[in-house]
Structure formats: structure tokens, C-alpha cells
Simulated scan of single mutants.
Amino acid sequence: MKALMRPRTNRDDYHTMSREQQVNLIRLRTGHNRLNAHMNRKFKLAPSPTCACGQEDQTAEHILQRCPLLDEERKEVWPSPIPLQTKLYGSRQELKKTTTFITSAGLIV
């Protein structure tokens, strides 16, 4: 009965996404993911924290913003540069683009 009397709350953009999309975003936001930097430093499961491109550590910021190996996929999803903050915390459209990018890049975060 109490549940019926409570006012309905509107769901934010993050909570309207699928469970898989939410998990990917949380992992990217927090840094607790399966990218080399975290897997090497925290669990010693990756031989090196460095990305396959060899330029810097494989972090969420690196793969979303700068990794040269993912330039084509990044330009398909975001034709013009977008700040990292928008990619991880923006509108539903931006969050959807981020999860699409992760999927099209073949990354498991």
C-alpha cells in the first residue's frame, strides 16, 4: 500500500539504459574495469598497463579520447571532439554513443 501512495520518481538518463550499458558506464566512470591499466596495477593480470598502441596506459580516458588504434571508430561515433565528461555523464544520447563506441571497438570493460 505504501508503494502505491509514494509519488513516482522520474528516472534519469543513466537508469533508462540497459543493464549491460549501465555496467559498462559505471566501469568506465570508476576506473574499475578490465582495461590494462587497472588489471595490471590492481590484480597483476595484465603484463603491462600500456595500451596496445604503446603510447600510454590503457585507461578509460585514453580509449575514449586519444588512442590512435580507435580513431576510426571514434570518428564514426563522434565526428567532432567531445569532452570526456560529456561522454561519461552527458545526456542519454551521449551515453548511448559511448556504449556504442565500446561495442564497435570490440572492447570488454
Rank of each mutant, 00 (worst) to 15 (best):
M1Q: 12
M1D: 09
K2M: 07
M5R: 15
M5E: 15
R6V: 03
P7G: 02
R8S: 11
R8L: 11
R8C: 05
R8G: 04
R8I: 07
T9V: 15
T9H: 13
N10F: 11
N10S: 10
R11D: 03
R11Y: 01
D13F: 00
D13R: 02
Y14D: 02
Y14F: 03
Y14V: 01
Y14Q: 01
Y14G: 00
Y14I: 01
T16G: 03
S18M: 04
S18F: 03
E20F: 06
E20L: 12
E20D: 04
E20A: 14
Q21L: 06
Q21S: 15
Q22E: 00
Q22Y: 00
Q22I: 02
V23T: 14
N24Y: 05
I26W: 03
R27C: 03
R27I: 00
R27A: 01
L28W: 01
L28C: 01
R29F: 01
R29D: 00
R29S: 00
T30M: 02
T30P: 03
G31L: 01
H32R: 12
H32L: 12
N33H: 02
R34L: 14
L35A: 00
N36C: 09
N36R: 12
N36M: 05
A37W: 14
H38E: 10
M39S: 06
N40Y: 08
N40H: 14
R41I: 02
L45Y: 12
L45G: 08
S48T: 15
P49L: 00
T50F: 14
C51R: 09
A52P: 04
C53A: 05
G54K: 08
Q55Y: 06
Q55V: 15
E56D: 15
D57W: 04
Q58L: 02
T59Q: 05
E61Q: 04
H62G: 02
H62R: 06
I63N: 01
L64R: 08
Q65R: 11
Q65P: 03
Q65V: 13
Q65H: 07
R66K: 15
R66E: 10
R66M: 04
C67V: 04
P68D: 14
L70P: 10
D71S: 12
D71F: 06
E72F: 05
E72H: 12
E73M: 09
E76Q: 13
W78V: 02
P79R: 13
P79Y: 05
P79K: 10
P81Q: 15
P81H: 10
I82C: 13
I82V: 15
P83I: 07
L84S: 04
Q85K: 13
T86M: 05
K87Q: 11
K87P: 10
K87F: 05
L88V: 02
G90K: 08
G90N: 04
R92F: 02
R92I: 08
E94P: 11
E94M: 13
L95H: 06
K96P: 01
K96L: 05
K96Y: 10
K97I: 00
K97V: 00
T98K: 06
T98C: 06
T100N: 10
F101K: 08
I102H: 09
I102R: 11
S104G: 04
A105S: 15
V109I: 12
